[in-house]
């Protein structure tokens, strides 16, 4: 639901880097997005196309990699993949403990740009 503020921020960061490196045009933007972050990739591109009009990043492609959510066992500290929507999952594969902390799967990270 908050694609717009996220995209505004991404564009700002991208344009700052584009200016610093004196690029003519940004072609693609590689992003990492947590699996649990709520956003629609289509909407992100849509908002991006709209906001980037007339800038060096106009028509750049968003390449989004979703980062899987992970849990850490509170007992033995083993980390493992989070199974969404399930009562059976979320059990430590090593010690079978069920008290676990969510340690990954949220946030937005700009990895790099492809530019001309």
């Amino acid at each position: 639901m908050h694609e717009l503020p996220v995209i505004e921020k991404i564009l700002k960061v991208v344009l700052a880097h584009a200016a610093k490196h004196r690029v003519k045009r940004v072609v693609a933007i590689h992003l990492e997005v947590g699996e649990l972050s709520d956003l629609e990739e289509q909407w992100m591109q849509h908002y991006f196309d709209h906001l980037s009009k007339g800038s060096r990043a106009e028509k750049a492609r968003l390449v989004i990699e979703r980062i899987p959510a992970r849990l850490q066992c509170a007992q033995c500290h083993e980390t493992f993949l989070f199974v969404t929507v399930s009562d059976e999952g979320n059990v430590c594969p090593v010690c079978a403990a069920t008290d676990c902390r969510l340690i990954a799967g949220q946030g937005y990270f700009i990895k790099n740009l492809e530019a001309l």
Binding site: K9, V23, K111
Partner: peptide, 15 residues
């Protein structure tokens, strides 16, 4: 030089 360059950003959006 119309070659594509890779520019490292490595920035957290909500930092």
């Amino acid at each position: 030089s119309d070659e594509i360059r890779l520019i490292e950003v490595k920035e957290e959006i909500f930092a």
